[in-house]
Design a protein around this nucleic acid. Structure first.
Lengths: 250, 250
DNA sequence: TAAAGTATGTGAACGGCGTTCACCGTAAAC
DNA sequence: GTTTACGGTGAACGCCGTTCACATACTTTA
């Protein structure tokens, strides 16, 4: 079943890999992401790239997806430095790593997480649905809940739109095998993602006092505020220490 | 004291006004903001614009500032539809208007509120410091506090970086005449702005379940969660009704 | 094995972009 | 009334995304 790939298909996939690799190189070097620059570095002429992407926007989407994927690996690695049963620590480690990554790679963050989705009907939506970072964090929040069974909102108490959203999710979440009555957890995740996103985006864009960005106090505050909602009230001081240690490492 | 302006200075300011006016026209029409387009619509050649802005980025900054200013007027107008002594209502009205404006004008929102500030040493920082929307909302939060005197964090309890930030603010806040021991209010404002920004940015960029965006449930949730911190626990149901009424008007 | 077909790349071109520079009239300043 | 500085032009440069006709090399099929 492995070698159904023809030679051409393999070559094509290799080219796609090179496209995303080169694109990320350019971004990392502080250069602009452009079709011409990517083609040039690949030893191609610009029109050749159109055999792989149908427009510049599609290149951006492709790269954004790969950035999310690659970044998620570092988020996961941060968690894996902790014991497998320290679910709270693992979640906090990933979330903190997300913040540090975003601050250290603002262009990549903007591309993958602050790119307006023009039309709801484009492939972006589908890609979002299988977002890697989303899967990682929902998974970690779920693992934590299955361990400590903190209270979650009941489905009946949720507003109709929210209930629909959690029973039939479109946004990244690996919850197909999560019992329907436990879907309140997804609402909790969405809340957490919203606050996390707020502080990180504000920091990345610099629309916040530089001294607060530098110290990470708003990030710490946001995590502390959210912790009780997922049953981490007791553990919070240890978790804060973890966060501060990571921030100090810059 | 009024007519110290020479003829040339008046002409120059009129040109600046036309630049921002035309720029906002272009944005409103869904066109791209570009030096050439602005110049063209003004009946100028592109190089002429360089007598007024030294680069494209500076044009963007200029327009971003004007957008903030114009949008703030609509936020203020929403508040002014309520009695002068309904400080809670006025704040919520402005905040809700901000959310609706952002969703209705995503390009303008992105320009003014999601534009990365490259160098800390450019004029962007100063412009941010006098941000109109920031002034409006800090003013409203302060008026509310002076009326209900909800608890605020004590200066001694704040982390050092936060204490510095609130005693010597760089980010938009009209607090020069706010007693030093009451500056904990500024930290509260920063918290509120962070959560507000998170939900709105996430909605504007579409990185959230469309049904939740449409219904505004996450926005309502965020406001409800924040309300108790500024002494609005009792008033919250009325405020939520206000929000929902505004959302329903689309 | 030869022909047909398809996937992949090229070169030239178009229009648009930000930006620079030499140049020029005209309005203000002395 | 001369000088000076301001505001504007036209041409050009080097980027950009995108298109199209064309060539080449690989696969598939007869």
């Amino acid at each position: 079943m492995t070698q159904v790939q023809t030679r051409r298909e393999r070559q094509r996939e290799a080219t796609y890999d090179e496209i995303t690799r080169v694109s990320r190189e350019l971004l990392a070097e502080g250069a602009e992401l452009s079709l011409r620059a990517v083609a040039g570095r690949m030893g191609m002429t610009p029109p050749a790239l159109y055999r792989y992407v149908s427009s510049y926007q599609e290149l951006v989407d492709l790269v954004a997806f790969e950035i999310d994927k690659a970044a998620t690996e570092t988020f996961a690695a941060a968690a894996d430095r902790l014991p497998a049963d320290d679910h709270a620590g693992r979640l906090v480690a990933s979330v903190t790593e997300f913040r540090m990554w975003a601050l250290g790679n603002p262009r990549e963050f903007t591309l993958a997480f602050a790119n307006p989705i023009a039309d709801v009907r484009c492939m972006r939506r589908e890609m979002l649905t299988i977002s890697n970072s989303g899967h990682l964090m929902t998974g970690q929040m779920r693992a934590l809940w299955e361990h400590n069974h903190h209270p979650i909102p009941r489905l009946e108490d949720l507003p109709p739109a929210v209930r629909e959203s959690v029973t039939d999710p479109l946004i990244p979440a690996k919850v197909d095998d999560l019992a329907l009555e436990d879907r309140g957890l997804v609402w909790l995740f969405q809340q957490g993602w919203t606050t996390l996103y707020g502080v990180v985006a504000l920091e990345v864009f610099g629309h916040m006092d530089p001294r607060i960005i530098e110290s990470g106090e708003m990030f710490v505050h946001v995590v502390r505020e959210f912790a009780p909602k997922i049953g981490l009230a007791e553990d919070i001081d240890r978790l804060e220490a973890m966060i501060r240690e990571r921030i100090a490492r810059r």
